[in-house]
Every structure is written in C-alpha cells, then in structure tokens.
C-alpha cells in the first residue's frame, strides 16, 4: 500500500497559543487512522490544515505526492479530500439530492443526470433514497449526517476526513452514523477519523494517534493502545472514559 498523506513536523499557533507543536504521521491508502484526545488538543485544527481551511506556520503536508501550502490550488485538492463536520452543514435551501449533486456539477462539471445517478447510488447505500426530495430540516440529526457523508463521497475523494461527526448526536443516531462509517471502511476508503467514541475508535482504526497539547503522544494499533497505554497522559485520558464501560 502506498502512502497518500504525510504530515511532517506540522506547526500552527493562534497568537501565543501553540495548537500544533510538531505533528508527524502518515496514512497509507485504504487505511483508517483514528485520532483521539481531549477537547482543545488540536485534533480539529489538524484536520482543517489538511484541506486548507486553516493555514499552518511550519512543517509540511504532502498529499498524493504534492506539497500543500500557500500556492496550492485548493479547489482541485479539496475535490480529492472529503470532509464531514460535527454540525452536518447541509445546505438548508437545497433538497437532499441537490445537496449531493451541487459540487459534482459545479466543480467536476458532471452532467446533472450523471451526478444524480451517483447521488442515488450513495443514498441507496445509506438507505435514504426515499429522502431524495426532502429538505434538510425534515431529516433527523443522524440522517443529516449520513447525507453529509454521501455529499462528500459524491466527489469520489481519495481520502475522507471526519471531524467528531457524532459529537452532537444522541447515542442511537450516533450508532447509525458509525455503522455507515464502518461500511465505508470496509470499501477500503482511506479515512482520518477524529472521535470521542472510544469503543468506535477501537473497532474501526488500523492505526491510532493519541494527541495532547498539540503533540502526538502515542501512536500504534488501537487494540494495543486501549489494552496497555504506554504513557501516563494516555492512561489519565482513558481513565475518564472508564465509567462508560
């Protein structure tokens, strides 16, 4: 498997506050990388620098052999990097189907029929094809988030970034979204998943990063990490979740 994304010594500060303090990792094609860590440890900022929503101060990001930075044609790069946010952000004025076909039509210049065919296939996969003409406000949180995933997938990205996509859903709705993610992982989609769901992090990832204070504190196979965290910080972090088990 070849490396599709490499992040080397990535640095980023908001004023005096260091958010990313020399991050290193890489992701191979077809693999799932999970990132966990306390709120404010820099996980979301890390994802946002990868698709250019946030500029970085130092280090480098190499995506598919191309160094990303100030001169990057983000329009092209972003069409290869799918991203899903915590707040779904479906376009409220567009029906489900039009939410999904907007970018393929405008960015990839696909014909409407072709884009709709792709969209319907995706909707069938997440079992929401009966909602094609619904407006976002008519959907539940879990349904919205699944449509947001389909919308990102419609661009046929090389990699998908998920930023705490179940954080504002109740457990039942989280479940349906996480199942959609597991199905996606089974299709060998390359993914980076930032999550607070520890059970899920254990189940889905090939590889796991534990971040704290802008640094990667531990990296390894999820099974090993949860069974025997090597650092004090990781142990302290995991102990907060124990009451859930």
């Amino acid at each position: 498997m070849s490396e599709i994304l490499a992040v080397r010594n990535l640095r980023k500060s908001f004023g005096p506050h260091v958010v990313l303090d020399g991050i290193d990792f890489s992701v191979d094609e077809g693999k799932v990388l999970t990132i966990i860590g306390a709120s404010g440890c820099g996980k979301s900022t890390l994802l946002r620098t990868i698709n250019g929503l946030e500029a970085f101060d130092g280090g480098e990001i190499v995506f598919d052999g191309e160094r990303l930075g100030p001169g990057t044609d983000w329009r092209r790069v972003r069409s290869h990097i799918g991203m899903v946010f915590q707040s779904y952000d479906l376009f409220n004025h567009l029906k489900v189907i039009d939410n999904i076909t907007l970018a393929p039509i405008k960015v990839q210049n696909k014909r409407k029929e072709e884009a709709e065919e792709i969209a319907m296939n995706l909707l069938r996969r997440i079992r929401l094809d009966d909602k094609r003409n619904a407006y976002p406000r008519e959907l539940s949180g879990g349904q919205k988030q699944r449509v947001a995933i389909a919308r990102a997938l419609a661009m046929q990205p090389r990699i998908m970034l998920f930023d705490e996509i179940t954080a504002s859903l109740d457990p039942e709705m989280s479940q349906e979204v996480l199942e959609a993610l597991l199905e996606l992982a089974a299709t060998k989609m390359t993914m980076i998943v930032v999550t607070h769901e520890m059970g899920f992090a254990k189940a889905i990832g090939d590889d796991l990063l534990f971040m704290d204070d802008g640094k990667v504190v531990e990296r390894g196979a999820p099974r090993d990490f949860f069974a025997a965290p090597r650092t004090q910080r990781a142990r302290r972090f995991l102990s907060r979740f124990e009451y859930q088990i």
Partner: peptide, 10 residues
Amino acid sequence: QVESALSLGL
C-alpha cells in the same frame, strides 16, 4: 456553511 462548501471544492 461556507466552510463545508469550500471543503467540497467550490
């Protein structure tokens, strides 16, 4: 909304 549109490549 703007960020999610930009992240789709618009």
